[in-house]
Design a protein around this nucleic acid. Structure first.
Length: 138
DNA sequence: ATTCTGACTTGCT
DNA sequence: AAGCAAGCCAGAA
């Protein structure tokens, strides 16, 4: 994926306050680009330098393969958790899910805007130039 | 072009 | 509540 997308995702992650979380799909939706799997891919490769535990599955489960350290952070930050039987736990999504304030929403918008600009280029995506040799004439 | 894979989601048993 | 299938989006082989 493009480097610009990676930076946009990480920027959003940095916006999430301690004690709150966002699902992969939520980030994708805020960004208006890519899907849950793309966000997951970004976190997998570049999440190390961020508060990666604040981005997780929509079901409330911690990032695949990182449940132990994630739990430590959740306890630290007082993230709402729910116990389930057999000693399992999961983040209480309805409570923990981050809902951006107006200002925060503005910041998010700034990010998506920058992303669109950098992704589609300073020129609009609506540009219709036909490249030489791209003709599909029979 | 086709197929496989993955820090995902949702809908249906 | 838990398991399964199908969708979904991009990158890699």
């Amino acid at each position: 994926m493009r480097e610009e997308y990676v930076e946009a995702v990480l920027a959003v992650v940095d916006l999430v306050p301690a004690g709150s979380v966002l699902a992969y799909g939520d980030v994708a939706e805020l960004l208006g680009a890519g899907g849950p799997r793309q966000v997951g891919a970004v976190m997998s490769r570049h999440g190390g330098q961020t508060a990666w535990w604040r981005i997780l599955k929509a079901s409330g489960g911690a990032p695949e393969g990182h449940e132990a350290p994630a739990l430590g952070h959740y306890v630290d930050e007082g993230t709402p958790l729910r116990r389930d039987q057999h000693g399992g736990w999961r983040v209480d999504m309805p409570q923990a899910r981050w809902t951006p304030s107006d200002e925060e929403l503005e910041a998010v918008e700034a990010i998506t805007e920058a992303l669109d600009r950098r992704l589609h280029g300073p020129e609009g995506p609506g540009r219709e130039l036909s490249e030489p040799g791209s003709g599909m004439d029979p």
